[in-house]
Design a protein around this nucleic acid. Structure first.
Lengths: 231, 231
DNA sequence: ACTCTTAAATTGGTTAACCAGTTTGGGTAC
DNA sequence: GTACCCAAACTGGTTAACCAATTTAAGAGT
């Protein structure tokens, strides 16, 4: 999507069609930032699609901040024409992200959040991270699937970074990773034990408020994954 | 979101209420990954809200990958109960991101994309970046507002990173930044000229396929902004 | 008993009518 | 000529009826 993960490919193509038509219309009319678009009903009729398709397209463009829908009044262009055209192309060409892309992005994000968390964590944050770490260790020690507990550990760290935007991005990126993850390659007995050690190292670095060390530990933690996606 | 920029705060609170009720229901029934939720109509009646509110809440949770709605069949829990509960708390507590958070995230992202772009850019990518750079320079030389051209330059770089996930994130993050940006503090004559130089340096580093240099140049480019948000 | 068929009930999705604000423009008072 | 007002038209948002696909389970046939 969306940034979205879900294609629901049936709809998506139609929605892109509508977006392109809106783009063409805006360009044809040479609208500028703040100008009003035709009403949903009119576009619906002119484009030959149902109104809710128009609404969906507008919602999507609103999500990316290029349109702004104003209740009982109208929809306006929320950005200049230049930026609008440049963004539209990217929005409609967003395909479903690959596993490697997602992991690459996640690693980049987490190397940042763990550093920030080391600087900004409160004692309450630390407590939460510790709690997540313990749940993770408990799950691993009984040889169970620990993927979600791992996620919550990393999420707790992101939250301690005090940057809610990065938390949002983590929330967006992680689920499709979990969905794709080959669960078999994860839990591997003794290797799982070493995973505990790495998580503890990260925790200790955050506790010690040592951003450089925390970043390095997180990087080590991702080493195997990084190698994996380079194949 | 949302990650979302738009609060439409009226709706948001109700939607969070519904999400919390769905959370409670799932926990009360001890659902596991793959289990079906009650139908939209039943939840609508049980929660005392209209069905479209239920649908909106489900859509949002689907967006974050915790639910999966299956046409004419039902909605299922797409994640384990542990991960579900951990994510819900974050999702409902996502407040509108502050300017500083957004900029901090953007800088982190762009330092990564510019490095990747330096490694992976094709000649076509380079051409696109050059084109965006020229548009930027043209706009600056006539003393006009260049914010959107700047955005497109950075977007072109992100695209050259060959990571569509990062492009998505850029698209999500940048608009609220533009919206908040104090346009007055940007264009300042001779300073604007030095901005051109910095952009050209970034371009040259990407052309030379030198990730380290490109990252440094991008970092320099963001130096002033970085200082600004530290106040 | 067991399997296959089939029709009724249930599902998420779609549609068109409806609603309450907002905008608009012509008419009225001065 | 100008300012004001108010009703008609139009706006995005909401609602409830409708749809087609799926699921369910009862029943017929063997």
């Amino acid at each position: 999507m969306k940034i979205s993960l879900i294609d629901e490919n049936a709809n998506r193509l139609l929605q892109n069609e509508v977006i392109i038509k809106i783009r063409n219309l805006i360009n044809a009319k040479n609208l500028e930032r703040g100008d009003k678009l035709p009403s949903e009903r009119i576009m619906s009729e002119k484009f030959g699609v149902k109104r809710n398709h128009i609404r969906e397209a507008i919602r999507r463009l609103e999500f990316y901040g290029v349109l702004k829908s104003m209740s009982q009044s109208g929809t306006i262009l929320a950005i200049g024409l230049v930026g609008f055209n440049g963004m539209i192309d990217e929005i409609i060409s967003l395909d479903a992200p690959s596993f490697n892309e997602l992991v690459e992005t996640r690693i980049s994000l987490e190397l940042k959040t763990v550093g920030l968390a080391s600087q900004r964590r409160t004692s309450a944050d630390l407590k939460q991270i510790k709690k997540a770490l313990n749940a993770f260790k408990a799950k691993i020690s009984i040889g169970d699937d620990y993927l979600e507990e791992d996620l919550l550990f990393h999420l707790a760290i992101a939250k301690a970074s005090k940057n809610s935007t990065m938390v949002s991005l983590m929330l967006l990126i992680t689920p499709p990773i979990l969905a794709t993850y080959d669960r078999d390659t994860v839990c591997e007995g003794d290797i799982a034990i070493s995973e505990i050690k790495k998580h503890e190292d990260i925790y200790l670095a955050i506790e010690a408020k040592n951003p450089e060390l925390a970043t390095k530990m997180m990087s080590d933690h991702f080493f195997k994954l990084k190698k994996h996606i380079e194949n």
